[in-house]
Every structure is written in C-alpha cells, then in structure tokens.
Amino acid sequence: MPMDVRLLRIDSRLLHGQVTTNWAKVTKVNRILVVSDKVARDKIRRTLLIQASPPGIKVNVITVAKMIGIYHDIRFSSLKVMILVEEPEDAKRLIAGGVTVDTVNIGAISFDKTKVMVSDAIAVNDVDVAAFSWIHKKGIKLDVRKVSGDNSKDLWHALSEKELV
C-alpha cells in the first residue's frame, strides 16, 4: 500500500499560518512534507520551515526525487501526509513519478514579471500553465482554496476564462 497522501498543495509560501492551522487539522495528517529541490538544499529556508511546524506534526523538507522514492516504499506506508510544493511543475513531477491524488489544491502562487494574474492570489506563466494542463489531462481536479472553508473554485475554469488554455 503506498503512502496516504491526504493533500497535495501548491503554495509559493509553502508552510504558513493558514496551512498549519487549517489544513493540518482538517486533513488529520501526521506529517507535512515540503517537497522542493531548491528548498531542500537551502539550509536557511529549510530550518525556518521546520521550525514553523505545527505542534505535534513533524515537517520534513525533501527533494522531488526523494518524495517519489519514499512514496513507493512500504516502510513509510503508515504516514498520513500533506505535501506542499512551491510551483505547479513540482506537482506535475510528483504525479508523473506515481504519486496518486484526485485533486491538487492551489493556495497562492506569487506574482513576478513573467506571470499574469489568474485570480487574486494566483499568478501563472507559460511553464505553470503547461504543468496545469498536464495535470488536468490526467483527470485531476485543480481546486483553488486558501483554507478548507473557502468555496472551491476550479482553476481550469479560470484559466479558460482568461484564455490561457
């Protein structure tokens, strides 16, 4: 039995207040995995993230390759995890690597010059759009919600409306 992934979330800020208090409680996970090659190698961010962990839940910061490795390893099957990634591309890589989910939750993707705003909190560029399209084609729902209590919006709709896909 593979690992129980209760939430796969894209959020540029990775682990922060909303996520820690709300999602961890709602999904009842016992582990938060921050998956990012960049962050896993950045000692400072890594430490900061681990310190931000909510009480009683352990946070690990690992690379995409490692995530895929442990996902399929039965030794880790007792974990109930929430996966946090920074960008859609990482989510795509995880799903391509075999991590099975039916929904990808999107919190916030920060804006920069290369991106256009899709909603008040989500900005995308070509790479992001390509990744989202790939995920959508796999039949996986793209659920936009900051916290679990929000009304779910479909990112695919928003992308279509903006004529980005």
Binding site: L33, K58, N60, I62, K66, G69, I70, D73, R75, F76
Partner: peptide, 12 residues
Amino acid sequence: LDKILIDNLIND
C-alpha cells in the same frame, strides 16, 4: 534504528 530512520524519511 529502523524506526528512527523511517521517522526521518531516510530510505537509503
């Protein structure tokens, strides 16, 4: 030890 390793996601 195995438990400790697993708890820390060390698989190699």
